[in-house]
Simulated scan of single mutants.
Amino acid sequence: MKLQLAGLCVALCAVMLSGCVPRIELAAPKEPITINMNVKIEHEIHIKVDKDVDDLLKNKSDLF
């Protein structure tokens, strides 16, 4: 009899605690998200040429 009463109490507690779960809702924002970016890109290319290649380019300018 005590075992049945203990089981009934456990079941009753489980039912009561199952109603205490918080409610979570996800919703999209009503206004669009705007991202303002000001980007400035600068680059420099430095080419170091071997002396032999440099002489070849000076002597035969019709290569390119």
Rank of each mutant, 00 (worst) to 15 (best):
M1A: 15
K2L: 14
K2E: 15
L3S: 15
L3F: 15
L3H: 14
Q4L: 13
Q4W: 15
Q4S: 15
L5S: 11
L5P: 07
L5F: 12
L5Q: 13
A6T: 14
A6M: 08
A6G: 04
G7E: 13
G7I: 13
G7Q: 10
L8Q: 06
C9E: 11
V10N: 08
V10I: 15
A11H: 05
C13M: 15
C13N: 14
A14V: 12
M16L: 11
M16Y: 13
M16E: 05
M16D: 08
L17K: 10
L17Q: 11
S18W: 09
S18R: 06
S18Y: 09
G19Q: 06
C20Y: 02
V21S: 01
V21L: 03
I24M: 02
I24T: 04
E25Q: 07
E25D: 13
E25W: 06
L26T: 08
L26E: 04
A27G: 12
A27I: 04
A27M: 06
A27N: 12
A27F: 11
A28T: 08
A28N: 04
A28V: 05
A28P: 07
P29E: 08
K30M: 14
E31L: 14
P32T: 02
P32A: 01
I33C: 08
I33M: 11
I33T: 12
I33W: 07
I33Q: 09
T34M: 07
T34I: 09
T34A: 03
T34N: 07
T34S: 08
I35C: 07
N36I: 10
N36L: 12
M37E: 12
N38H: 07
N38P: 03
N38A: 05
N38M: 07
V39F: 06
V39S: 11
K40L: 02
I41K: 13
I41C: 09
I41L: 12
I41G: 08
E42K: 02
E42T: 12
E42C: 00
E42I: 09
H43P: 05
E44W: 00
E44A: 00
E44I: 02
I45G: 00
H46T: 13
H46F: 10
H46A: 13
I47F: 03
K48Y: 09
K48C: 06
K48W: 03
V49H: 08
V49L: 12
D50W: 01
K51T: 11
V53S: 05
V53M: 05
V53N: 05
D54Y: 05
D54M: 01
D54Q: 06
D55H: 07
L56A: 14
L56F: 12
L57P: 07
L57T: 04
K58A: 06
K58V: 01
K58S: 03
K60V: 10
K60G: 10
K60N: 14
K60Q: 14
S61F: 04
S61T: 01
D62H: 01
D62S: 02
D62A: 01
D62E: 02
D62N: 00
L63N: 03
L63Q: 02
L63H: 02
